[in-house]
């Protein structure tokens, strides 16, 4: 019975030693050796007029929530207006098509596809500099929609020709 207790004690000691060894070897790897002073504390803390320590006033930039780079589903209303604009464009009513797209843009001002469509209508109306700006604006909202970006870039280079 006594020998069993002894072995158990040795085993626990061994385990503790093993764990301790792990801990001491892992810290330098993570770049923070035990006992080293954090860099911030090497500079004297800022003092306010009252002489008390004040935490730094700089608020960290929070990394913004990365917006999803999938083409979002537009509202039903926007889809209907885009369709109307497409019909108007097909029948040569370019001014009306532009008006319909502007109406859709009032509903979804950050919809990259709408800016792209409007750029195409303006291009057809030979308003090249406006078309180019509209396509650039579409790019600003396109996120990682590469096919839309490519189309905008084609339009911009054609408009600048």
């Amino acid at each position: 019975m006594k020998t069993r207790m002894f072995y158990r004690f040795v085993a626990i000691l061994f385990l503790l030693g093993f764990l301790g060894g792990c801990a001491s070897t892992s810290l330098p790897e993570r770049g923070r050796p035990a006992g080293s002073v954090p860099p911030e504390s090497r500079v004297p803390p800022p003092e306010s007029r009252s002489g008390r320590y004040q935490p730094p006033e700089v608020t960290a930039y929070r990394e913004p929530v990365t917006p999803k780079y999938t083409r979002p589903e537009p509202a039903r209303a926007v889809q209907a207006l885009v369709k109307r604009a497409e019909d108007q464009r097909a029948s040569g009513q370019l001014v009306a098509a532009a008006a319909s797209l502007e109406r859709a843009l009032r509903i979804e001002p950050k919809n990259a596809v709408l800016w792209n469509r409007l750029a195409h209508v303006r291009f057809e109306q030979k308003q090249f500099s406006l078309a180019s700006s509209l396509a650039a604006k579409s790019n600003a909202f396109a996120g990682a929609d590469q096919s839309l970006r490519a189309d905008n870039n084609r339009l911009i280079s054609r408009a600048r020709r």
Binding site: A98, L118, L130, S133, K137
Partner: peptide, 13 residues
């Protein structure tokens, strides 16, 4: 008359 939406890029995004 219509006063359409005009856009001109004046600074890089």
């Amino acid at each position: 008359q219509r006063y359409p939406l005009q856009v001109a890029q004046v600074a890089e995004p």
